[in-house]
Simulated assay, not measured.
Amino acid sequence: MKKRLLVVFMCISTFVFAQDIHRFEDAKGNSHLCGEFPLKTLEKDEAFQEWFVKNYDNFPKTEKQKWAKKLKDVQVDIYLGTWCGDSKRWVPRFVKIWDDLGLKREQLNFIALYNSSVEGKYKQGPNGEEKGKKIHRVPTFIFKKDNQEIARIVETPNNTLETDLKQIAFECPSEPNYRAATYILDAFQGKTVEQIKMEFNKHYSTVYYKTKNRRELNTLGYVFLEAGKVQEALIVLKINTYMFQHDPNVYDSYAEALAIAGETEKAIDNYRKVLLLDRSNENAQEKLQELYKK
């Protein structure tokens, strides 16, 4: 009788635990995580186990280092997408080096975000876990001490994982990747949209020297759009059209945001610019027909 009760209890516990982990399906029917979850989900769940174990096992072993002790009181919030190639590559590697350095897994917190297949939720969590954290790329590793951020790694290490961790341990972290996006996010946290617009040229000049390619601000623009921050998206995508004037994609993204904002004439103008640079662009052609009808 006791054995039977024990089995029933274990089944109920497993069911309850599984129910606490949020999931969603992408357009292809693949299962993904969203929200907070325990690390063992990546290690044990068939949907994620293959890529996690492979990238964990294939990452070279790191010898224990004395400086690692400086990280023993540091918590790391890891925002990732189980649909994201960079997350699949770098999260297992990060866990491997963390284990090799003798640090505790209890210091790591995992938060999965939606992809673009969930409308209005791109790079967001089911309970707004990402809000106020300036997440625009995944994975993002946020290092905290006494609940205060002390460093972050955005998408990929700036140097090597070991070097970046060593710099964080000695309180001299590298500046994270995507400096332009980080600058804009910081600007929006300290000022209103109207203030940013009034200082547009100043921000454009600063961003110009920090941006590596058009994808950086393009992605940030869509993160704003999905979060319902249309005016912020318009500013970011407009800056992108100034910097990459010969790329049809920047005008396409800006036109999409303008159409969402109800600025139909400006949207039409920008879709026309797309076709001037790429006459065969079917998306721009379709969108123009829709806008003309309005």
Results as ranks from 00 to 15, higher is better:
residue 53 V to G: 01
residue 263 E to Q: 15
residue 209 Y to Q: 13
residue 156 T to L: 05
residue 229 K to A: 02
residue 184 I to H: 00
residue 201 N to E: 15
residue 6 L to M: 09
residue 41 T to F: 04
residue 24 F to P: 03
residue 89 R to N: 10
residue 192 T to F: 06
residue 129 E to F: 05
residue 223 V to T: 09
residue 47 A to V: 04
residue 138 V to I: 14
residue 264 T to K: 15
residue 33 L to Q: 04
residue 166 K to C: 06
residue 76 V to A: 11
residue 102 G to Y: 06
residue 105 R to A: 08
residue 66 K to P: 07
residue 261 A to D: 14
residue 251 Y to H: 06
residue 22 H to Q: 13
residue 248 P to K: 01
residue 286 E to Y: 05
residue 185 L to Q: 14
residue 250 V to C: 10
residue 153 I to W: 02
residue 67 W to T: 07
residue 282 E to W: 07
residue 256 E to T: 13
residue 164 D to E: 09
residue 157 P to Y: 04
residue 293 K to H: 11
residue 213 N to M: 11
residue 277 L to D: 06
residue 203 H to P: 02
residue 148 Q to K: 13
residue 98 W to K: 06
residue 53 V to H: 02
residue 74 V to T: 15
residue 75 Q to P: 03
residue 110 F to D: 01
residue 193 V to E: 09
residue 173 P to F: 01
residue 235 I to T: 03
residue 81 G to V: 14
residue 234 L to S: 02
residue 247 D to V: 13
residue 238 K to Y: 10
residue 99 D to L: 04
residue 207 V to A: 06
residue 182 T to E: 08
residue 220 L to M: 10
residue 100 D to L: 05
residue 245 Q to L: 07
residue 106 E to F: 05
residue 180 A to L: 04
residue 212 K to N: 11
residue 89 R to S: 05
residue 62 T to D: 03
residue 205 S to D: 13
residue 159 N to R: 10
residue 258 L to V: 08
residue 73 D to W: 10
residue 180 A to Y: 05
residue 5 L to S: 07
residue 35 G to V: 00
residue 108 L to M: 07
residue 217 L to W: 09
residue 191 K to R: 11
residue 191 K to C: 01
residue 127 N to F: 10
residue 68 A to S: 11
residue 171 E to Q: 15
residue 251 Y to Q: 02
residue 128 G to T: 07
residue 170 F to P: 01
residue 291 L to Y: 08
residue 154 V to K: 03
residue 125 G to M: 04
residue 290 E to C: 00
residue 117 S to G: 10
residue 255 A to F: 09
residue 41 T to A: 11
residue 136 H to T: 09
residue 180 A to R: 01
residue 10 M to A: 13
residue 9 F to K: 08
